[in-house]
Design a binder for these strands. Structure first.
Lengths: 345, 345
DNA sequence: AAATATAATACAATCGATTGTATTATATTG
DNA sequence: CAATATAATACAATCGATTGTATTATATTT
């Protein structure tokens, strides 16, 4: 049995009926009698019929597909966000196309074009570190394709986003270090044109202010927060005249590579320098000392963003395109910041 | 400017020419003169025209899209394989749709249906742990859609795959433990109906045999090799009458959770028990002690599998569907297995 | 049994692009 | 300049499904 390219027309011809009836039967329309429905279904499965979604979607002008653009799927936060997205989309009858920007603006733009060409019904985006210009989102807006930012959002009007309170998280992380007795805290920041990093940075400053610690711009290192950046930041930090006793890193990756670099320099964490990261990567609980960090549930963020997006798709072009949902994030205290208590060994 | 749904027909009407000419111009056909081509391109970009790939693909009966099915994208091996796949596909003009089976057979089957419905040109698969039955691949075969297994393959005739030599890797890992002085080595295996785990297991046995160590089936624990399985395996192991001095785990995840569990039990790695994992997850170099493991380049496997798949797509239905490419994998010796040398602290 | 209502199915246009063939316009040649 | 070659564009069918409308077949009512 060659199941090569069976169409509704083939089935129609064999059963000597019209293809529209076949189509309706396969879509379980009440306009087809139970008896013919069964005949059609039986023949379809006998021939191994498989609907051509290209044709169907073209005609219906609806793909039931969501596009997702993330910096990279290998980051724990993003892969769990994708898990949440897929789970939710799947339940609500949507497929998902995933694109990685790899932190490059150009790939982000290309991804949007691909998604547009594939006529996705909506898009979920967490922008790349290079993204400072948002023109590429105009294409989506002009075509009235709903899109929702999650985590790495843009502060442009008429957009929806699902985020955590980065300001508060940055504040909490920094205050935690202060309460541990840290007095000279450096901040590893990401690119400050990204809202999330700006907000974490503002939270850091606010915590210093509250506790009457001087803010010193020299103690803030901005980078892409990759592994090498953690190493580089440590070098810069050690070259400072100030004696550093705390690090608040805007992600775990840089925090962890910094901790390793500190170890190589014979500096003890947390006793000499306490460290707090951000994101709660899987590894953060496992390394030694375990890393104090901000836990943000990627799964929940992904789930919420997907629900919001699909509700916008369902509502047609009624403009509720300005929603902002804040997901709870909280500090997980682990060993890397326990200056006061004895660390269990 | 409402760029809502501009088609070649709109452009044709405005310029008072035929849509076929517009189509040819947009595809840079030599059949359209440079002058009209420019007029068309200018108007297209002015209107923000964006080709409808659904229509195009439907007509051409070619989507230039590859489907990828992996157990889960959060595993380092798979996310780097996907990086290799995307990179290669992208260069050769293909898009990629990624599906996660989450180790469930049902989701693997559904994914195949989705990919079939979306008329992908080819599929790359690494099967789930539940997959013992391969009927769902018949749909691909009947429709003459090429597919290539990578890493987790099936031993069924007329299929191509890109793999490492799991037997040799298992052998090397085990022999390494033996050369370190281990005499009673347990093996954490995955489901033995999967070729890769069977082969690693056979490699383990072969190494024991070569070095005249008795094989004992009680020392082999088969599981899905998740985090909890590592913990459970340690309990089982400690309940054995034998004094264990080595573990060869068929993945890093189980190896690492086992090491943590051993630590909780006051058992020293590597001095009391040496451990070797498999896959070289990112975390494996970072934990303490760092984990000796088999490095398999996901990127290279993904790249090679994609090249093979695309070459099969390009060659039409000429049957070269029986290729098997073996990618080098090698042991990375780290601290978790250094019984003889002093471990640097 | 005729008249009407309703159920079941057929007809035909459509989604947006592609492509083989036909036609018209320009260029070349003798 | 007429005859032919060739370039440029137009025509029309097609990919596979969906869906509003028209038609035929069956059921209901009087």
């Amino acid at each position: 049995m060659s199941t090569d390219r069976i169409t509704i027309h083939d089935i129609a011809k064999i059963l000597n009926i019209d293809s529209s009836t076949v189509s309706r039967a396969l879509n379980n329309s009440p306009r087809v009698t139970e008896k013919t429905k069964n005949r059609i279904l039986a023949k379809a499965s006998e021939l191994g019929y498989q609907r051509n979604d290209l044709a169907s979607n073209l005609r219906k002008n609806k793909t039931n597909t969501l596009g997702v653009i993330v910096p990279r799927i290998s980051r724990h936060f993003f892969s769990s966000a994708i898990a949440g997205i897929e789970e939710t989309a799947y339940k609500l009858g949507y497929n998902v196309i995933i694109c990685q920007s790899l932190e490059q603006l150009e790939r982000e733009q290309k991804s949007i074009n691909t998604l547009l060409a594939n006529r996705v019904d909506g898009v979920l985006v967490s922008i790349s570190m290079e993204t400072e210009n948002y023109d590429h989102f105009d294409g989506l807006r002009q075509r009235r394709i709903p899109f929702v930012f999650f985590d790495r959002h843009c502060n442009i009007p008429e957009t929806s986003s699902v985020l955590i309170n980065d300001f508060k998280a940055g504040f909490d992380a920094t205050e935690h270090l202060i309460l541990q007795g840290c007095e000279t805290i450096v901040h590893f920041s990401g690119p400050l044109h990204l809202e999330i990093y700006k907000n974490r940075y503002e939270g850091y400053k606010a915590a210093l202010l509250k506790h009457q610690l001087a803010f010193n711009a020299d103690l803030v290192f901005s980078s892409k927060l990759m592994e090498q950046d953690g190493v580089d930041n440590v070098s810069k930090m050690l070259a400072l005249p100030d004696k550093i006793d705390g690090i608040f890193s805007a992600n775990d990756v840089a925090a962890i590579s910094a901790m390793q670099q500190l170890k190589k320099n014979g500096i003890k964490v947390p006793n000499d320098i306490a460290v707090v990261g951000f994101s709660n990567e899987t590894i953060s609980a496992i390394i030694e000392p375990s890393l104090t960090t901000i836990n943000q549930s990627g799964f929940e963020i992904g789930k919420t963003a997907t629900e919001l997006l699909i509700s916008q798709i369902a509502s047609g072009s009624k403009n509720i395109v300005n929603e902002r949902i804040v997901i709870k994030a909280r500090l997980i205290e682990r060993d890397s910041s326990q200056k006061r208590k004895e660390t269990v060994d």
